[in-house]
Amino acid sequence: MSEKKSKKVTIDMNINGEKVETDILAADLLLDVIRNNLGLTGAKPGCLNGDCGACTVIINQKPMKSCLTLAIEVGDKEITTIEGLLHSPVQKAFVDEFAFQCGYCTPGFILNSHALLMNDPNPNKEKITEWLSSNICRCTGYKEIENAIQAVMTKTHNKNDSD
């Protein structure tokens, strides 16, 4: 068998509000590039099959599974990883509501929830379920995660009322 020489290419990425340049192979997964090249290890390799959602990142305002995305596809798009969120209402709510235990699925759930509320500040129950059923949490009973999202919605609602 002949060994094909894979060539590295340099891409620009727009990640967490910063422009970065990194060398990748065309076949590299976005997940591997953000973890290994950029050192952003908040996105986790839970299954590498698109089943568990632990690798979720936000690409142009939509939650995407970075294990099903090639890094070469995202050049001009805005990417947010968990490291790009700081003291967001969703994070605070996850802490207050104990919406995590081991923490491994947590970045994925937070980014998914954050993207949901960014796209629709007042989603109904069905919509929340539709969005969040793409991720798996094995520790909680999901009730805590539901409570966290409700807490953010209530807060946003109250704030808008008082404005």
Binding site: R35, L40, F94
Partner: peptide, 21 residues
């Protein structure tokens, strides 16, 4: 009371074995 490991877990700073390189 809030968990001692709360903030590292919601910010992606929490390090697991496979995160080390």
């Amino acid at each position: 009371v809030s968990r001692k490991d709360a903030w590292e877990k919601v910010t992606g700073q929490a390090v697991y074995t496979g995160d080390k390189s």
